[in-house]
Design a protein around this nucleic acid. Structure first.
Lengths: 160, 160
DNA sequence: TATTGTTATACTCTATAACTATA
DNA sequence: TATAGTTATAGAGTATAACAATA
């Protein structure tokens, strides 16, 4: 395929000039492409037995903030309450989390990590670290820090 | 809600210490949150009448590289060929693009932008620029450039 | 055999709306 | 009234697999 000159259209980077990529100039486009790339590598690396990203993020919240409620997790992750039910069901079925009653408010249920849950969290965290270390091998720590800082600043825009 | 001390769990940034955010340390997590934030603003700003992101990106390719084939567009955008059919159908129904026959290869169809298509592209581009200018108002041009450069480097990992 | 366009299909992720029980 | 958890549902976005026509 490469090296052929039979094509009738102009592709970027090939026939010399024409380096005017409209999409490349948008942050949103670059953001999506980068997200897709990292996410695909994540799935290849962790997808087999490890938890899907959102389940890991929920487990992470419960481990870090024991007795947190589902609503609080949803708020912190920026997703809907309803979306959490299945995730917590899943984590509870695995024995990683238990729903405990909250004295003083019978609407809420405190999410408590089990020891298995904490272990699973640490192991998943290790796997994800390995995946990112591999994926970002060509990045300096400074580049990664700069990238994450800028991404947090992006997120901060909507949070006001 | 704020200022209350009745909660039984520890949330970040509130009760002093506990600033050990596991998720925040991952590029992938920050990438996703930032992508979601920008995408939501995009939908609010453009979603009414403007084209969805992927349709705009396809139109953009056809305008920039007239006579490009569907397969080439898919390759450049990093998506599946099959996904393009509906997008091009849509753009063709709007009169923005026509499928023309390619002399010498009767399998392919060259995608040619109409004048309406070029106009629509320019207008959409202007809208998206306005959305990004607004959203990234607190970012310096240097920050935006750095961010985009790093995001392109992320994308290059899988392509390299 | 490989590639282009196409269709049919199914899956993932997530939001919306409505309900219940509490507060 | 407002909030926590839940359910049912629907939609966007996208991938997979197969096929016909052509190379």
């Amino acid at each position: 395929m490469s090296g052929r000159s039979t094509k009738t259209h102009t592709e970027p980077g090939h026939d010399g000039v024409d380096e005017t990529p409209a999409l490349e100039g948008f942050v949103g486009y670059n953001l999506k492409r980068a997200y897709v790339a990292v996410n695909e590598d994540f799935k290849k690396a962790i997808g087999q037995d490890g938890p899907p990203p959102r389940v890991f993020s929920a487990l992470s919240m419960v481990v870090q903030y024991p007795n947190i409620t589902q609503s609080a997790v949803a708020r912190l992750l920026g997703i809907e309450r309803s979306g959490l039910v299945a995730m917590i069901d899943h984590l509870e079925a695995l024995g990683h989390v238990v729903r405990a009653s909250v004295p003083g408010d019978r609407r809420s249920q405190a999410l408590v990590p089990t020891q298995t849950g904490r272990d699973a969290f640490l192991e998943a965290q290790k796997s994800i670290r390995a995946h990112e270390d591999r994926f970002f091998a060509d990045f300096t720590q400074d580049e990664k820090d700069t990238l994450m800082a800028l991404l947090r600043k992006v997120r901060a825009v909507e949070e006001g």
